[in-house]
Design a protein around this nucleic acid. Sequence first.
DNA 1: GTATTCTAGTGGTCGGACCTCTCGAAGGTC
DNA 2: GACCTTCGAGAGGTCCGACCACTAGAATAC
Lengths: 248, 248
Amino acid sequence: MAKTDTHMTMRVVNHIRSMIESGGLQPGDRIPPEREFARKLRISRASLRTGIGYLAAMGVMDVRHGVGTFVADGPPEIGKSSLSLLGALHGFQSWQMFEARRILESELAALAAERGHEHHFAALSEEVAEMYATVGNAMEYLIHDIRFHRVIAQASGNPILAALMETITSALYDERRKTAERSRDLKESADLHREIYRAIRTRNAAEARAVMKRHLAMAQSAQDLEAMAGEPKSDARTRKGRPRPAEV
Amino acid sequence: MAKTDTHMTMRVVNHIRSMIESGGLQPGDRIPPEREFARKLRISRASLRTGIGYLAAMGVMDVRHGVGTFVADGPPEIGKSSLSLLGALHGFQSWQMFEARRILESELAALAAERGHEHHFAALSEEVAEMYATVGNAMEYLIHDIRFHRVIAQASGNPILAALMETITSALYDERRKTAERSRDLKESADLHREIYRAIRTRNAAEARAVMKRHLAMAQSAQDLEAMAGEPKSDARTRKGRPRPAEV
DNA sequence: GTATTCTAGTGGTCGGACCTCTCGAAGGTC
DNA sequence: GACCTTCGAGAGGTCCGACCACTAGAATAC
């Protein structure tokens, strides 16, 4: 994009980037201690830290106090921590997040039906069973709910879409964690998950997509109702969507 | 997520976050000079800078050397700069990016057909005309191509989906900017864009989605062919997708 | 009036001191 | 021997204070 060489920050980022791209640095690997690494790169420790901080903010590095700095392991995250902040800044509406989720997850379900493997199906089945077993405990239920959707994302075979979904859903939970569902809803919810599972297992992509869409629409309206009952204040952040001119 | 109060970084982030959420800080606004702000927050300038750097990396703040630090203006960006890095790290395949783009943009087109306003249609029409006028110049053509898709994203009325699309497409351009199309392809491409435009203008969501999907599928296979011809090296980053256990 | 130079203000870099956290090693206790 | 406690090396976190580099507008020169 830019000079890519002037700012120390970018020098660090590019250096690490090339180490990653060349395969010299893999997820889970550790980079040298700051003092040593700074000496090697011929920059100050402060500058090195700036660069590392940048990478950490993007989810590429994992800095552990007293231990060391590592290349991020685990599933990729795309702007997971930034979304809620950006939401506050740009006034994202929760229906927009739900819409994004609906689109992503329904396609994810369809892909899972097409590409899922037997172990995915088994995991889904497991979670559905657990959901039925915990309809009386919203807390427990939620765990399996989340896992169910996560397994579908993995089964889709597209880590990018999975990461995007993760970003959206985590922001959504963030927004209102308090909404405690009632048992009756949970039973219904479990039924729908079971339907989704069946559609995926029978590799019926269209059906999987449709049921997932239905499930999420239902979840949304349930949350909307609760939210309305809970806090009838008209959202303070209402901002008229200034029709921004089509910019390049 | 965490203590949210121990680390200086988070103290800064939370402070600014609350300023944003309370409406005291709007896009484009400027925060106090570092020295002054640090004094006010009773922390060192270095720590303040760490926090600001974090926010800047997430696209929330815009730091301008010699000028000041501002709350990001312009359209929201979700992990735009991180995707290519994450891609290198997790070995994202380009077909996966295309698939994500196909899904996002086809739904975006459908939404645009449902919700677009007259000025969006006018802008789309404008870009289509420009595309036809520049089929002989791939460089120029590309600009209008990008704008066309961007207008659709705006017309969808969902800034979150628009931001996600922007993230994917920018990473895609990043990956192979060199692929210069031939004029014949451009003419075909322009025709498809015209079809998309018409579907949207006539508020035919299903048609818009379908044509967009077709357009992107075509674009993908075109790039694949060029890529294959250009660099027949088998991707070095092949990694067996260790079936990670479904974690919470 | 225009072009050049200066300068105040702001972010960027430095290095080097000191604090805090983690984890394993070394001892001590039962 | 198994377990708990203590300790210390090594790593990141914070701070300070000085100085560098960039930007924009004011002052000056022509």
